[in-house]
């Protein structure tokens, strides 16, 4: 048995294999559901209904997709340049921290000024968090996978320290949480009565900007060249270390915008459970999107639907909502396998 590169790729394969991948992940989840003594068809119907079955459900799904678009873009941008940023979680929190530092009254600006300032501050925070591992990679050759992973733990402890110290809400009844951001720092809801907020529009915009950078700008070209073959890029005269640094700033900034949007648009304040692993799930989103910035939107909505639907389902069907995490992780693995098979085929002799 061996793999041979396919000479050409048909559209059927390019679309069909990823679809098969999602089905395989679903099948795996179905087996687990049966182990829980439930009927997989009922469970999947409940997930579908709970995520897309009503206007309310759909809006809930898009609300959940918003931070995932940001962290998914962060991973996609970095992975395209082969900068293995697994630290989306820390960068996400960095954005949230900056938002509450400057958004809870420190800067008494009107909304049209304050919101851009907060966005910038948040991006700066996230960018700084990823810049350090990128610097260690280019300067000392330290593998960024491990450093970004370890940074997640360090930064979460730092957030905990802040929430029990300088950022602690004195009115919070002793809970480790920050004060609410002021009204001028809040992103308005898209429609009255819904939780979906302008952060979603911001996320869509970010996806288009990233797409534009990738396709039309010198920086996008440099990032792709470095990602595909850093040695040849260096030979051609592309400043590899600088490109990696820029990639880190953009990627970290994007993840941090997710933190900003979640605080300013949805939660209002910072707590230690602001992110149920958005940073890690962003990696799955990026891979499901095949690192395409516009694909990230669809992938984020899909993943969010699984999570939102599973929450609703577990309340009524008695299957643990962790089934959603299993499905998402399984689809990551099946998807990377499927993508490989669109490029190679198996030969049995």
């Amino acid at each position: 048995m061996r793999l041979e590169p396919r000479a050409e790729r048909s559209l059927l394969l390019t679309l069909g294999f990823p679809l098969l991948a999602l089905m395989a992940a679903g099948l795996f989840a179905a087996v687990l559901v049966m182990l829980a003594g439930a009927n997989p068809f009922t469970v999947f119907a409940l997930i579908l209904k709970g995520s897309l079955g009503s206007r309310f459900a759909l809006m809930e799904t898009l609300t959940r997709a918003t931070p995932l678009i940001f962290t998914g873009l962060a991973a996609a941008v970095a992975f395209r340049a082969k900068l293995w940023n697994i630290g989306g979680e820390a960068q996400f929190y960095a954005g949230a921290v900056m938002t509450v530092v400057f958004g809870t009254g420190l800067l008494p600006l009107p909304a049209p000024l304050l919101i851009p300032v907060l966005m910038f501050a948040a991006m700066l925070g996230g960018a700084a968090i990823l810049y350090a591992p990128a610097f260690l990679k280019t300067r000392f050759g330290v593998d960024e996978v491990v450093t970004t992973l370890l940074f997640n733990f360090i930064f979460l402890l730092f957030v905990s320290l802040l929430l029990e110290g300088p950022l602690k809400d004195p009115m919070g009844l002793g809970w480790p949480q920050s004060k609410k951001v002021i009204a001028d720092a809040q992103l308005p809801r898209l429609m009255k009565g819904l939780r979906l907020h302008w952060g979603f529009v911001l996320a869509l915009t970010a996806a288009f900007v990233v797409w534009f950078i990738d396709r039309r700008t010198v920086l996008g070209y440099e990032m792709r060249a470095v990602g595909h073959n850093a040695k040849a890029a260096h030979f051609a005269g592309i400043p590899v270390a600088r490109v990696i640094a820029k990639t880190a700033l953009i990627s970290g900034g994007l993840a941090a915008l997710g933190g900003f949007s979640e605080v300013a648009g949805l939660k209002g304040n910072l707590t230690l459970d602001l992110s149920p692993g958005f940073g890690y799930t962003g990696i799955v989103v990026a891979m499901l999107a095949l690192l395409n910035p516009l694909g990230v939107i669809a992938a984020a909505v899909f993943v969010a639907a699984v999570f939102v639907g599973a929450d609703a389902m577990s309340r009524s069907a008695g299957v643990p909502s962790y089934i959603a995490h299993v499905m998402v992780a399984a689809s990551l693995l099946t998807m990377v396998t499927a993508v490989m098979f669109t490029r190679h085929r198996l030969r049995w002799r």
């Binding site: 039309r216 700008t217 010198v218 920086l219 996008g220 070209y221 440099e222 792709r224 060249a225 595909h228 073959n229 040849a232 890029a233 051609a236 005269g237 592309i238």
Partner: peptide, 26 residues
């Protein structure tokens, strides 16, 4: 760069100057 196109490889040594790009746009 094997995974990039012929066009992208031909411009590789001078991509950031005219005629290949202006003001950061390719």
């Amino acid at each position: 760069i094997g995974d990039m196109s012929i066009t992208e490889n031909v411009m590789a040594e001078t991509y950031d100057a005219p005629p290949f790009s202006r003001r950061g746009l390719i």
